[in-house]
Write a protein that binds this DNA or RNA. Structure first.
Lengths: 235, 235
DNA sequence: AAGGTAGGTGTACGGCGTACACCTGTCAAT
DNA sequence: ATTGACAGGTGTACGCCGTACACCTACCTT
């Protein structure tokens, strides 16, 4: 009877439930501490039970990626190719910001998942249909945008990707620039906003990632528009 | 006596020897199959011996990254900031092409290594000194270039990163586009060069990665030059 | 001769992904 | 009502991983 209660209380596993739990776990604990065993425990189930719903861990990761890609808004038509692309890319960025582990996960897999292919495909479609791009130019544009088209550019300084940021009310840790490094890398220190007054102890405000992302995005989009307008044919 | 021979025959370990062996192992077997145990075996030594030269596996990876970064040619002055940057970035690209595991390794670490900081620092220095960039614009430029500044842009289709390409005389596997996917992703299929004649069985030649890389690089550099010339101040 | 030290060794532990055999409840066909 | 297939959760076990810790040994300094 007690068994019956238990049987009733927990909704049965499903691929979807497994994937969503995995995404949640990676969101809060970081991708590197996501294991089949911890995931199973989270779901109140024995590790091997997961294998009835995903073939192996790699397939689990693929599924997780597809969950994230599925959160990207569909394209909103109107306003020209640049506006459509820009909007959608910023939507993709928001999705990936909610799942800081996703960039590395995506980059580490060596085959694009069907969901990613679908997303890329529709991006090319926008270029072709809304912008009148040649297949060739569209091709190069996709490469030029690189991962930016998926809403992220890997920031070398970014440490928010591997684990949940230590706590909800993290009081803005001084990510500016360690004082002793400022001497060795003066140009970087200047950029980081460390105004080297008497002592190299002042710390800048870090970067406005959103601004930087849009700066680069628009730089690319504008350059591409210029190519398109002059009827790009060859290099 | 036999022991003496053995002692003499094998050069003693050193941090440098460990790092170089690790790089070689990752080059030929893929980063995901690089383990402390295999590395030790390769060096004819017991696993724990490595820990006298590197603190742990993460530090080993950092060291490996620095080996790769160390292979990037120093900047060659002359011809204006764009030329200097372009040359050096293409040199970085060559270094990373020799070590396909490096991009993921670099992106997966959450702190830039000193060697990478030094490289970035000298890049900013080129912008400032040779191009007369403001600190602000130099900052945004660095973000805009993203990982391209390190010689790579993560290609979603690229499968050469995780392991040694199966063999030296690999006869150009048909990476074009699986015929059944062509139907689902027509735009991508068109781009892949799969001329969909009667049957969707034709396969294109893939991408010229070097061309794509330089296309995007020049697109960015030209856009940046335009900003610089018009005396960029704010967005 | 004494003793410190750098560097290689051996053992062991806990965590990982997952193969494989097993059990159990449900449902369709007999 | 009986059967048997089958979907889905279980338990055990294996080999791999990173690495803590105690040890040994050769060499260098004094």
């Amino acid at each position: 009877m007690a068994e019956q209660v238990e049987t009733l209380r927990r909704t049965p596993l499903s691929r979807d439930r497994v994937l969503r739990a995995a995404v949640a776990l990676a969101d809060e604990a970081g991708i590197e501490s996501l294991s089949m065993r911890k995931l199973a425990q989270e779901l109140g189930v024995v590790p091997m039970a997961l294998y009835k719903h995903v073939a192996n861990k790699d397939e689990l990761l693929d599924g997780m990626i597809d969950v994230v890609v599925g959160e990207i808004d569909p394209p909103v038509a109107g306003g020209g190719w640049k506006r459509v692309l820009r909007r959608r890319i910023l939507s993709a960025r928001q999705a990936l910001l909610r799942h800081p582990w996703a960039p590395i996960a995506i980059e580490s897999r060596n085959q694009a998942t069907p969901a990613i292919l679908g997303y890329l495909n529709s991006m090319v479609g926008t270029l072709r249909d809304e912008g009148g791009f040649s297949t060739d130019l569209a091709h190069h544009v996709m490469h030029a945008m690189g991962s930016r088209i998926l809403g992220f550019s890997q920031e070398l300084f970014d440490d928010s990707r591997r684990a949940g940021r230590s706590g909800p009310a993290d009081p803005e840790p001084p990510v500016g620039f360690p004082a002793e490094a400022a001497a060795a890398f003066p140009h970087l220190a200047a950029i980081a906003g460390a105004a080297s007054h008497d002592d190299a102890s002042v710390v800048g405000p870090g970067c406005d990632d959103q601004f930087e992302f849009e700066f680069a995005l628009d730089l690319l989009l504008d350059g591409i528009e210029r190519l398109r307008q002059q009827g790009w044919t060859s290099v």
